[in-house]
Lab assay of single mutants.
Amino acid sequence: QWKVGDKCSAIWSEDGCIYPATIASIDFKRETCVVVYTGYGNREEQNLSDLLSPICE
C-alpha cells in the first residue's frame, strides 16, 4: 500500500512518458493521490492504481 512520501513512478499526462515522482498526498476515498515529479516540481493527480514502482536511476 502506498503512503505519503513514497517514491514511485508515474505517467505524466502531457506526454505519456514515465517519470520518477514522490507521493505528496493521498485521498483513500477516491483512490487518488497527488504526485510531485522529481526534478521538475510539477504536481499532478493520479489514480493510486496507476502508480508504478520507482525507477532505478
Rank of each mutant, 00 (worst) to 15 (best):
V4Y: 09
L52D: 01
S9N: 09
E14F: 15
S25F: 11
Y19L: 06
L52W: 04
K29T: 12
V36N: 01
W12S: 14
C33G: 00
V34D: 00
Y19I: 04
K3M: 12
A10S: 03
D27G: 02
S25D: 05
L52S: 02
G39R: 10
E57L: 12
I55E: 11
R30M: 10
A10N: 01
G41S: 07
S25A: 08
K3W: 13
G39S: 07
A10M: 07
C33P: 00
C33Q: 00
E31Q: 15
C33W: 11
E57S: 14
R43V: 07
S53M: 13
E45T: 13
S9W: 15
I55S: 09
Q1C: 15
T22V: 14
L51Y: 03
D27C: 10
S9R: 15
E44G: 04
T32D: 02
A10E: 04
F28W: 15
S9P: 05
C8F: 01
L51G: 03
V35Y: 06
A10F: 07
S25T: 09
E45Q: 11
W12T: 03
N47S: 07
A21W: 09
I23V: 05
L48A: 03
P20C: 15
D27T: 04
I23E: 01
I26D: 02
L51A: 04
V35G: 01
K7D: 11
P20N: 14
T38W: 12
C8Y: 00
A10I: 08
L48P: 02
C8W: 04
D6P: 00
S25R: 06
L51C: 05
W2K: 14
Q1E: 12
V4L: 00
D15H: 04
S49Q: 09
E45H: 06
F28N: 08
L52M: 12
W12L: 04
P54W: 10
D27N: 08
E57P: 12
I55V: 11
G16R: 04
I55C: 13
E45L: 09
E57H: 12
D50P: 03
A24E: 15
E31M: 15
S53W: 13
S13K: 13
S49L: 07
I26K: 00
G16S: 04
I11Q: 02
S9E: 09
G39P: 09
E45K: 05
A24P: 02
S9F: 15
D15T: 10
E31G: 15
K3N: 11
N47Q: 10
V35S: 01
C33L: 06
E31F: 12
G41K: 07
S9A: 13
A24Q: 10
T32Q: 02
Y37E: 00
C8A: 00
R30Y: 09
S49P: 04
D6S: 00
K3F: 13
R43L: 08
Q46D: 03
S13H: 07
L48T: 03
I26M: 03
Y19M: 05
S13R: 09
E45W: 08
G41V: 05
L51F: 03
Q1Y: 12
S25K: 02
